[in-house]
Design a binder for these strands. Structure first.
Length: 535
RNA sequence: GGGCCCGUAGCUCAGUCGGUCAGAGCAGGGGACUCAUAAUCCCUUGGUCCCAGGUUCGAGUCCUGGCGGGCCUACCA
C-alpha cells in the first residue's frame, strides 16, 4: 500500500476530562506514525484537537460557575500544553467551538436534512430528571423498574416522550457492512473489526441526533430547528473533515480537503470504536463522501491492578495501590520527554491493553535507552576517540560478523520502511533492540579495546568500530521519529551533517570516511529506583 | 441479558493451519570482561499454559460448561 500522502487523526479530546496518560498515549502514537511517514518522504497531515460541546461540559461549567466557553478555553490550553511537553507536533489543532467547524456542521446538517436523511420523530423512554438523561427499557428493568439505574435509591424515572431528529443510519447499514467486510474500510486489529461486524449483524436503527435545548444548550444549533442542538458525536466526528476545509467557502480550503480526504488512519481508543466505525462512516455515506481507509483501535494503559486509569464514572477502588498511579505529569517529571515518548510508543501492540506502573517504565527506559542505545553510543564514540582519532574509519569489505551486524541494522530499516503498511511501531523497536544486542555481542567477540593495545591490532579495531558505528547510526535512524531530538543529536555525533534525508542515509556506509565524530554524549541518563516518587 | 475480547514463568508478553510450544525480555542467582551510563557478554533458577469436562494417537492450541476481567450494547463522551 504505497502512498504519496498520509492523513492521520487522533480523536479530539473531550474537555471535560483533564489530560491523562491515555490522551498522551494516543497523541504520541499519532505523532510517531506521522513522523515515520514524513521521514519516508510521504506528505503528511496530522490533526488533533478538542471536543468541546455536550452535556458534561455544560454541567462541569455550571458546577464551577463559569461559562462553558471559558471552561473550554482553559481545558483546550491544558491539552495544548500537554502536547508541547510531549513534543507532539500536530499540523493543526481544531476545537469544535471554532466557527470554521460549527459552520461546517451546520452545512452538513442542512444537506442531510434537505436530502431526507434527517427526519423528525418521537423518542419515548425512561427519563431521569436528576441525571437529565434517558435510560433504556432494559436498563430500567434490570434495576427493578421505576428507578434510575445510576442512583436507584435516590432517583426515580418517568416515562417521557419527546420530539427529536433522527439520522437515517439504518439506510446505510448494508453498504457499511460490505465496506468493512471487504476492508474497503479497514478496522484493525481484526478482533475489533469482528466486533463491529457483530454489532452490525444485530441490526442498525436510526440515530437520534438532536437534543432539546431545554436540557442541553451547549451545542451546535440545528440549522432547521433552533429548538434543538446537535448530538455531540455528530458534531465531533465532523472535525476530521471540517479541519481540512470540507465545504469551506474558500477555494484553497476546499482544495486542501480534496488533497487530504479520505483520512488514512483514524486513531481511536477501543471505547469509541462504534462511533468511529458505524456512526461516522454512515454519515459519510449519506454525505456521498469516501470512507476513511483505516481505523486503528488501540487498547488502554491500565494501572497495576489491571483497572482503568481514568474514567470519569468509576467508583470502586477499595484497593490500596502500593505506588501512586502514574500520571502523565509524573511520567514527564521522572522520565522526561524522550523517556515518556519511548515508553508510550512501545507500551503495547496496537489493540491490546497493558498494565503498567512507574517501575515498569523505569525498567524499559533504562534497558532500551540508557543501557541500550545510550550506552552503545557512549562506548563506541569513546573507542572511536581513542582508536580512530575521532574520525569515521574505513570500513573495508567485512566478514561474516560484520555482515551480521550490518544485516541486523538493515532489518530495523526494513521495519521502519514497512511501517506505513503495518503501523506497527513495536516491530521497529523489536528490530532495533535486536540490532543493539548484535552490536554488543560483536564488540564482546572482537574486543577492539584489546586490539588497540596490540602492535598490529589498530586497523582491525578501527574496522570493528566503524561497522559498529554504522549499525548504530541506522538503528538511531530507525527510531528517529520516536525520539527526534535525541536522535538528531546522536546523528550528528555519528558523523552526519545537514538535513536528514532518509533515502540516502538508510544505506549502510552512508557516512563519509573521515567524517568528524562527536564526543561521547550522555543521551539517556539512567533512572535510579529512588528517583521514583514513593507512595 | 446480548455481542465481542482477554486470562501462558515474580513482571510485561510471543506462541501462525492442534504434533520439541512450554518460549523471549525484564527481575533473581552464578561466572567473565573492563571500551562504556554499577554497563556489556556467557550460563542459570522460575510455569497444574485460569478451572472442570470433552474430541483426538496427541491440545496453551479445537468443543462445552464454569470462574475472573474488559469493551460495546443509540443519548456521557
Amino acid at each position: 500500500m504505497s502512498q504519496d500522502r498520509f492523513y492521520v487523526t487522533t480523536p479530539i479530546y473531550y474537555v471535560n476530562d483533564r489530560p491523562h496518560v491515555g490522551h498522551a498515549y494516543t497523541s504520541v502514537l499519532a505523532d510517531v506514525l506521522a513522523g515515520y511517514h514524513r521521514m519516508l518522504g510521504i506528505d503528511t497531515w496530522f490533526l488533533t484537537g478538542t471536543d468541546e460541546h455536550g452535556q458534561k461540559v455544560q454541567d462541569s461549567a455550571a458546577a464551577r460557575g463559569v461559562a462553558p466557553q471559558a471552561l473550554c478555553d482553559e481545558m483546550a490550553q491544558q491539552f495544548r500544553e500537554l502536547l508541547a511537553r510531549l513534543a507532539v507536533r500536530s499540523d493543526d489543532f481544531i476545537r469544535t467551538t471554532e466557527a470554521r467547524h460549527t459552520s461546517i456542521v451546520a452545512k452538513v446538517l442542512t444537506r442531510l436534512h434537505e436530502q431526507g436523511d434527517i427526519y423528525r420523530g418521537t423518542y419515548e423512554g425512561w427519563y431521569c430528571s436528576r441525571c437529565e438523561r434517558y435510560w433504556t427499557d432494559k436498563d430500567v428493568a434490570d434495576h427493578g423498574g421505576g428507578r434510575c439505574p445510576d442512583q436507584p435509591e435516590l432517583h426515580s424515572v418517568e416515562r417521557l416522550a419527546e420530539e427529536n431528529y433522527y439520522f437515517r443510519m439504518s439506510a446505510y447499514a448494508a453498504r457499511l457492512r460490505e465496506a468493512i467486510a471487504s476492508d474497503e474500510l479497514q478496522i484493525v486489529p481484526v478482533k475489533r473489526k469482528n466486533e463491529v461486524l457483530g454489532f452490525l449483524a444485530t441490526g442498525l436503527s436510526d440515530l437520534c441526533i438532536s437534543r432539546n435545548r431545554e436540557r442541553l444548550s451547549w451545542g451546535v444549533p440545528l440549522p432547521f430547528d433552533d429548538q434543538f442542538v446537535c448530538y455531540v458525536w455528530v458534531d465531533a466526528l465532523l472535525n476530521y473533515k471540517s479541519a481540512i476545509g470540507y465545504l469551506a467557502d474558500d477555494d484553497a480550503q476546499r482544495e486542501r480537503h480534496a488533497k487530504w480526504w479520505p483520512a488514512d488512519v483514524h486513531l481511536v481508543g477501543k471505547d469509541i470504536l462504534t462511533t468511529h466505525s458505524v456512526y461516522w462512516p454512515t454519515m459519510l455515506l449519506a454525505m456521498g463522501e469516501p470512507l476513511p481507509r483505516r481505523i486503528l483501535a488501540h487498547g488502554w494503559l491500565l494501572d497495576r491492578h489491571g483497572g482503568k486509569l481514568s474514567k470519569t464514572k468509576r467508583e470502586g477502588a477499595d484497593q490500596a495501590p502500593t505506588r501512586p498511579l502514574p500520571t502523565i505529569d509524573g511520567l514527564l517529571d521522572v522520565f522526561g520527554t524522550a523517556g515518556t515518548r519511548w515508553f508510550l510508543a512501545t507500551a503495547m501492540k496496537p489493540g491490546d491493553d497493558t498494565p503498567f506502573d512507574l517501575e515498569i517504565v523505569r525498567e524499559r527506559v533504562n534497558t532500551d535507552l540508557a543501557n541500550g542505545i545510550g550506552n552503545t553510543a557512549n562506548r563506541l564514540l569513546k573507542l572511536a576517540g581513542g582508536a580512530c582519532d575521532g574520525c569515521f574509519p574505513q570500513l573495508g569489505a567485512g566478514g561474516e560478523r560484520e555482515h551480521g551486524v550490518r544485516d541486523a541494522a538493515l532489518a530495523a530499516m526494513d521495519a521502519a520502511r514497512s511501517l506505513p503498511d503495518t503501523l506497527d511501531v513495536t516491530a521497529v523497536v523489536t528490530a532495533v533492540r535486536a540490532g543493539v544486542d548484535a552490536i554488543s555481542l560483536y564488540l564482546s567477540d572482537t574486543a577492539p579495546w584489546k586490539l588497540v593495545k596490540m602492535d598490529d591490532g589498530r586497523p582491525r579495531a578501527r574496522e570493528v568500530i566503524g561497522w559498529s558505528l554504522e549499525a548504530l547510526r541506522l538503528l538511531a535512524l530507525a527510531v528517529h521519529p520516536i525520539l527526534p531530538e535525541k536522535m538528531s543529536l546522536l546523528r550528528g555525533s555519528l558523523g552526519m551533517t545537514g538535513d536528514l534525508d532518509f533515502v540516502s542515509e538508510s544505506e549502510f556506509g552512508a557516512v563519509p570516511v573521515g567524517a568528524r565524530l562527536g564526543t561521547p554524549p550522555n543521551l539517556f541518563p539512567r533512572v535510579a529506583p529512588d528517583a521514583l516518587p514513593t507512595a
